[in-house]
Every structure is written in structure tokens, then in C-alpha cells.
Design a binder for these strands. Structure first.
Lengths: 212, 212
DNA sequence: TTATTCTGTAGTAATAATACTACCAGCACT
DNA sequence: AGTGCTGGTAGTATTATTACTACAGAATAA
């Protein structure tokens, strides 16, 4: 009997995922949780084949989640399930050890495909993510395809950026990520510099513009 | 046989809602759509008891959705289903004619309760929304809640607000308007207080939402 | 394989922004 | 004719944020 852990804080989304998984796999044991700490707890206690993980889950929300999971279960398949804004995050999570990446607004067919693929021990990437991957390895692009400027941000920078466009203060970001305030400030400066902008409004606009 | 229309663009969320509804009502016909235009189309063609409507649905996203729906089916129950950020606008939708309001991150029990209540022809408000309602009638302002919260801003405040959402710094605004920095800061605080927000991002969102 | 750039991190010193308080002039009721 | 609130303005003291600098390890280019 296969076991799947669904770590996602929105109850309806959990319901939806659960429905799909049950439909795809006849004999399956699904465990749900709405926060990262208890997810880790569960991972230490029981083996799972697949972890469906919401980036924005309370207690998580950073790249370290990957190693925290792998520490408990090195062979588990991790399917990142991200909200609208975090699309840009995908690559960084894959680099950090995830096996698949899915956006919440994906059509049902894609979700099914992702889950079956993952349960088959293969990696799953959406078309959009694949494209980003290509862009990232060949940054020197021609004039015809404008590169996505958001891709020049490093993993940590992207994390900070993501929090910034939610209106989070530098202080709060520092606390969330357990960094010094000045460190976060440095990231912020680098983000602004790389994106050639000078305030949060422009950041929000740029992100909106390039993230779908 | 009861009929329900689910207008929501995220497939998983639709799945979740559908699962709950099917579980609650044995004999039910559920129709799904992922954009507002086709929702309207469907409403013109078939009668429904209940409409579950995502605020952020493509083609919609404004208060006029309420009258557009009522025009087709005056007696339908409308349950607004909103994402995290839009919480603040719940009241406005209720005033505009919705019968219930639910946030996407509500726990499963609440969702079930909302749907049963609504199918019973009663209105459903979450605790949070009720609280907002109370707050809105008790404080120092008259009962008539302006449909557009931006209207509570004074002239000078509005001027400052416009500059703020362009990303202008407090210092620069002070220079532009020939005011002391602290004066501008006071305006900024008053704006935030009146609009019940706490950062520029939220300001930008609120202004965008209410200014077209 | 070395030189160079990029990333993650942080400190010190300076600058920007905020909280809190205040004051006066209208206006709206009483 | 007084009481109370809103609107326009600002000061002081405190906090938050930035600028500039630094440094080590990773990644990459030469």
C-alpha cells in the first residue's frame, strides 16, 4: 500500500489533491497536514512514497525545507505545489532537491499527470518550468526572446523578493528567514540593482509582468 | 434535483468544492466553469440554487458581478469564495448582493457549514466578517459605509496616496508638495489607518481594486 | 587551474520613516 | 457658544532601512 503525505494549509486544496490521488491510485493511504512542523514530525514517524508540499505552508516557506525532508526520508519523491506568485521559485526548489513542480492553477489533467509521473519515480516539470530551465542555462540570448529578468535572481534573493512583494517588512523577513536585518537589506539592494528598479511598487509590477 | 454552479478558475479548488458538495447533498447536479463570462452564459441558460463564485475569476473581479448574476437569476444564492488577500473586501460584496462569504483558507468544517447554511436559504458569514461588520458600525464613522473606501480620504491624503502608489518616497513627496517629511508621514499613517492596511503593497492593491 | 564573478552572510554608520503628540481652524451638532 | 471631530500641519524621539564595506565559499570563465 502506497503512502502519500499532503502538506498544504488550504483545506479545499487538500480535498482536491486527495480526490485526485484516490482516483489515480486505488490502494493508497493519504495523510494530510497543514503545517510544516507536523509534516516533519510525520516524516520521522512513517515512510511515504510521495510528499506533496505547498511552498507557502506555515512554518516552512524556504528552500531549507528540501533538506529537512531529505534528512528524514532520502528517497521520498517531493512534489512542490506552488501558488500563483511563486512560480518563479520553481527552479530554485528543483535545484534544492525537489523532484517535481506544479502550480496551483494547473489544469486537472496536468495535476494528474504530475502525480502519476512522480509515483512512477520520474521527475515532473511543467512546460513553463522547462522553459525557464533552458533560459537559465543559456542566458546570452538573442534579441528575439527577451529573457525574464527575474531569473537573474539567486535562490535566496528570490525568496526575499517573494516576501517583499507581499508587503513584508525587512525586519519581518529577517525574522522569518532567521537572518540579520542587514543581510535582508543587502538582498533587497541586490534585487533592486539586478532588476534596475528603485522601489517596491516597481518590484511588484515587474514580478507581476514577468511571472505569467 | 438541486443544481450548483461553481465558478472558480483553479481546478483543484473546484475539485475540493465539488467533493464537499457531493458529500453534503446526495442528489445534486454540479456545473463547473473557470471564467466569469461562461458563468453568466450558464446562468442565462439553466436555473441554479447556488453559485459559488471566486472573486478573482478571470473576466470578473469586481462588484458588478453581483448585479450581473442577479439580472439572470434574482433568487440564486451567491457564495463568494475569496483568496487570502481579498478578505478585506468581503463586506463590499455582501453589500453588493452576495449571500455568503468564505475565504479559501477556511477549514473544511467551515466550508461545509457555509454550503449547508446557504442551501438552507440562509446567509452565511464567517466570524471574521461578522467582526468587521461590527467594527464598521461601531467606530467613529456614520453607518453609511462608502462603497469605495478610497472616498474616506481627504483631498490632501488623496494627493499623497497617489504619489505613494507610484513608489515615491516620503522624502520626495515632502519636497514635491513643499511639506515637512513628518507631515507627509502623518498623512501616510492616516491613509493606512483609514484604509485598514499596513503597507504600500496593500495600498496599491486596494487602489487598483477600487479605482476602475 | 587560476582568476574572477556570484552568493550568502553580516557589521558600522548614516539616512529615512514612524509613533506619538500637538495645535489651530473649520464644521457639525446641541 | 460650547463640545467634539476632521483636516492640515509639524516637532521630538525612536525605529527601520539603507549605503558601504567585508569576507569566505561556490561557480564559472579563461
Amino acid at each position: 500500500m502506497k503512502s502519500v503525505l499532503v502538506a498544504e494549509d488550504h483545506a479545499i486544496v487538500r480535498l482536491g489533491i486527495t480526490a485526485i490521488i484516490r482516483d489515480l491510485i486505488s490502494q493508497v493511504n493519504i495523510v494530510e497536514t497543514d503545517n510544516f512542523d507536523s509534516a516533519i514530525q510525520l516524516l520521522s514517524e512513517h515512510p511515504f512514497e510521495l510528499l506533496v508540499l505547498d511552498i507557502n505552508i506555515p512554518g516552512g516557506n524556504n528552500l531549507q525545507m528540501m533538506s529537512a525532508v531529505r534528512l528524514r526520508q532520502p528517497d521520498i519523491r517531493i512534489l512542490i505545489f506552488s501558488g500563483y506568485d511563486e512560480q518563479l521559485f520553481g527552479i530554485n526548489y528543483l535545484q534544492a532537491g525537489a523532484d517535481g513542480y506544479l502550480v496551483k492553477h494547473a489544469p486537472e489533467e496536468e495535476i494528474r499527470k504530475a502525480i502519476t509521473t512522480m509515483m512512477n519515480n520520474e521527475k515532473y516539470l511543467s512546460e513553463g518550468i522547462k522553459e525557464q530551465l533552458v533560459q537559465r542555462i543559456s542566458p546570452h540570448r538573442s534579441f528575439s526572446t527577451p529573457a525574464n529578468p527575474l531569473l537573474v535572481l539567486s535562490g535566496r534573493e528570490t525568496e526575499v523578493m517573494h516576501l517583499l512583494i507581499k508587503g513584508t517588512s525587512v525586519l519581518h523577513i529577517a525574522q522569518t528567514l532567521s537572518l540579520q536585518i542587514t543581510t535582508v537589506s543587502t538582498y533587497k539592494s541586490r534585487i533592486f540593482e539586478k532588476l534596475e528598479i528603485s522601489n517596491i511598487i516597481e518590484l511588484a509590477e515587474k514580478v507581476k509582468l514577468y511571472s505569467n
